[in-house]
Amino acid sequence: MSAIMRPAENAPICATTETEVSMKSESADAAVAARAGVVVEAAKPKVKWSSKPLLLAVLPPILGMVFLVLVWEIISAKSSGIPSPLVTFQSAQALFADPFYSNGPNDQGIGWNILASLKRVGMGFGMAALVGIPLGFMIGRFKFLSGMFNPIISLLKPVSPLAWLPIGLLVFKAADPAAIWSIFICSIWPMIINTAVGVQRVPQDYMNVAKVLKLSEWKIVTKILFPSVLPYMLTGVRLAIGTAWLVIVAAEMLTGGVGIGFWVWDEWNNLNVPHIIIAIVVIGVVGLILEQILVGIARAFTYEDVKS
């Protein structure tokens, strides 16, 4: 008969594994460290820093600007009337060395011209906001007003803002208020339309709750409508400021005086092409700054992500 293997009586039931020994030694070390007052910190995983997101954010804009300068250089090399980027840069250095000089009403630095244009835009845009936003609330809130004003808005909105400039000259008898009038009339439509659309898209459940609670019209506007409509309203404001900055340049070319539009036209009459290109860049930069300011305001007052 084959011998049957049986465990010895003095042998342990389970053999101690290497893992258990390691765990016991680690716990023993931790206990010793605790008695000694030493705090044992767990090993933290190392976070690898990657430069790829930074490159993707920075590299494309840089390559785009390099591409633009190369195209500009090629065009200037083939056309004698277009100055090169280097010549334009040198003119810009001389121009911005003293941007706020003043040698009379028709000879002022580019800084004064930019400020004059911003002043007109601010006045026209501000008046459009004071009129357009409340009117948009009323049109969106009341169907009767919506039916009354919608045909008027549909008829006048497609009209070019510069078409209103002669009406402003006829009424105000001066170039400056006529330019402000053009800014007002072009800025008001985006504010009215976007605000009215925002009011109309407020969930009906909110309005039903307001009826049950018997809220006053003022509380409905301030507590329900305004927070819900704010993203739409700020979108209309952003569209309006972009249109206003576009229109003021063209209006000032026609009306004259101090302003970036008149400055561009005056430099064209002097055949100073580098200054015209500089003015184009300045107009773009100022418009971009205005846009980003409003984007920042929109992000600060809304819970939704605002795309630039």
Rank of each mutant, 00 (worst) to 15 (best):
A3F: 14
P7I: 14
E9F: 15
I13E: 11
T16N: 10
K24T: 14
A28D: 08
V32A: 13
A36H: 05
V40E: 10
K46H: 09
K46G: 07
P53G: 07
P61M: 14
P61V: 15
S79T: 09
I82G: 01
T88I: 05
L95V: 04
Y101D: 00
S102G: 01
G104Q: 00
P105F: 02
D107N: 14
L115K: 14
L118Q: 06
M123A: 10
M123Y: 09
G124L: 00
F125G: 01
L130V: 13
P134T: 13
K143I: 15
I153P: 04
L155M: 11
L155G: 04
V159R: 08
P161I: 03
L165C: 03
K173N: 11
A175K: 02
P177F: 01
P177S: 02
A178I: 01
I180W: 00
I180A: 00
G198A: 03
V199W: 07
D205M: 04
D205H: 02
Y206M: 08
Y206K: 05
V209F: 05
K223P: 00
L225N: 01
S228C: 05
T243C: 11
V249Y: 11
N270W: 07
N272V: 07
V281T: 06
E291S: 11
E291G: 10
I293Y: 06
L294E: 10
G296R: 12
F301L: 15
K307L: 10
